Lab assay of single mutants.
Amino acid sequence: MIINNLKLIREKKKISQSELAALLESSRQTINGIEKNKYNPSLQLALKIAYYLNTPLEDIFQWQ
């Protein structure tokens, strides 16, 4: 199971779900699903999230 700190990191950087979704060329619903652990992002999307949040991938997503 993958757990994530996306919501915590996103809020700390003062970025809304909609703003992050626009940067990622994704939907706000996708970001919401990832944050609620209802959806696991593809590797490509996970890497883009890490890039746009300027945060190491392993700080956002962790195996448990």
Rank of each mutant, 00 (worst) to 15 (best):
N40V: 15
Y39I: 15
Q29C: 13
S27F: 05
G33K: 15
E19M: 11
K14D: 08
D59I: 07
S18N: 12
N54Q: 14
I34N: 02
A21D: 02
L24R: 01
S16Q: 04
F61C: 03
K36I: 11
P41N: 03
L43W: 12
P56T: 06
L43D: 03
I15N: 01
E35K: 03
N32V: 13
Y51Q: 09
F61D: 00
N54R: 09
Q29F: 09
E11L: 13
N5L: 08
W63H: 02
S27Y: 04
N5S: 04
A21W: 06
P41Q: 02
I31E: 01
L53V: 03
S16L: 06
S27W: 05
Q64L: 06
L23H: 10
Q29Y: 11
S42D: 09
P56N: 08
S27R: 09
S42E: 05
S26E: 15
E35M: 04
E19Y: 11
P56G: 05
K36L: 14
T30D: 05
I2N: 06
S16T: 13
Q44W: 11
I9T: 05
N54G: 11
L20W: 03
L57E: 00
L6K: 00
I3H: 07
L20C: 04
I9R: 03
N54L: 07
I15F: 08
N4D: 04
R28H: 09
I60H: 00
N37I: 03
L20R: 01
K7P: 02
E19N: 10
K13P: 01
K38N: 11
I34P: 02
K38H: 13
L53Y: 01
E19C: 11
I31D: 00
E58Q: 12
L53K: 00
K12L: 13
K36D: 13
Q17G: 03
E11K: 11
S42T: 12
K14L: 09
R10F: 07
L24F: 02
Q44R: 13
L24M: 08
N54I: 07
P41K: 03
E25M: 13
N4I: 11
E11R: 10
Y51V: 07
P41R: 03
N40G: 11
K36Q: 15
A21Q: 02
L57C: 07
K38A: 11
G33F: 13
Q44N: 11
F61T: 00
N40A: 15
T55E: 10
I9W: 08
E19W: 09
I15C: 06
E58S: 13
T55Y: 05
K12W: 08
S26T: 15
L6M: 10
N54F: 06
W63S: 02
Q29R: 14
I60F: 05
Q44G: 12
I31S: 01
T30P: 02
L53W: 02
T55L: 06
Y51P: 00
T30F: 14
P56F: 06
K36S: 14
W63Q: 03
P56A: 09
K38W: 15
I15T: 03
L53P: 00
Q17T: 08
E35A: 03
I2C: 14
K48V: 05
D59C: 14
R10Y: 08
A22M: 12
K12E: 11
Q29T: 12
I60A: 01
T30V: 15
E25R: 15
A22F: 12
R28P: 15
N4Q: 03
N32T: 08
L57W: 04
K14P: 02
Y52I: 15
K14F: 09
A22P: 03
K13Q: 13
L6R: 01
N32C: 11
N4H: 03
I34F: 04
P41W: 05
I3D: 04
L53N: 00
Q64K: 14
Q44I: 11
Q64R: 13
K12F: 10
I34M: 04
E58N: 12
K38D: 10
Y52Q: 07
E58A: 12
L8R: 14
A21P: 00
S27L: 05
L20Y: 02
L20Q: 00
I34Y: 02
Q44C: 15
K14G: 15
K12P: 01
N54E: 14
Y51F: 13
I31G: 01
E25V: 09
Q62H: 07
I60T: 01
E58H: 13
A50M: 03
Q64H: 13
Y52T: 10
K38C: 13
S27P: 11
L43C: 15
I49Y: 00
L8H: 13
E25T: 09
S42L: 04
Y52R: 04
I31K: 01
S16R: 06
L24V: 15
A46R: 06
I3S: 08
E11Y: 07
E19L: 10
W63R: 03
N5A: 06
N4W: 06
G33S: 15
S42Q: 05
N40R: 15
N4A: 03
E35C: 05
R28M: 13
L47I: 12
Q44M: 11
S42I: 05
L8C: 15
L45H: 01
K36N: 15
K14Y: 06
T30H: 11
I9F: 09
E58I: 09
E19P: 01
W63C: 06
K38L: 15
K38G: 07
K36P: 02
K12A: 14
K7L: 08
K12D: 08
K48G: 06
L6S: 01
E25A: 13
N5F: 09
R10Q: 02
S16W: 07
Q17E: 04
A50C: 06
E35I: 05
L43G: 04
S26P: 01
L43M: 13
L57G: 01
S18C: 12
M1L: 15
L20E: 01
K38E: 14
P41V: 10
K48Y: 05
L24C: 15
Q62A: 09
E58K: 12
I49S: 00
E11D: 08
W63L: 04
M1G: 04
K38M: 14
I9H: 06
S26N: 07
P56Q: 08
Q62S: 08
L8G: 09
Q64I: 08
A22R: 14
Q29H: 13
W63D: 02
L47E: 11
Y39F: 14
K14M: 11
A21C: 04
K7D: 03
N37S: 10
I2H: 08
L8D: 12
I9E: 04
Q64D: 14
K14Q: 12
L24Q: 00
K48R: 13
I15P: 00
L53S: 00
K13R: 12
I49L: 05
Q62L: 08
I60Y: 02
I15H: 03
A46Y: 04
L57D: 00
E11C: 12
G33Q: 15
S18K: 13
L24E: 00
L57S: 02
N54Y: 06
I49P: 00
K48A: 09
L20M: 05
Q62F: 07
E11M: 13
G33W: 14
K14N: 14
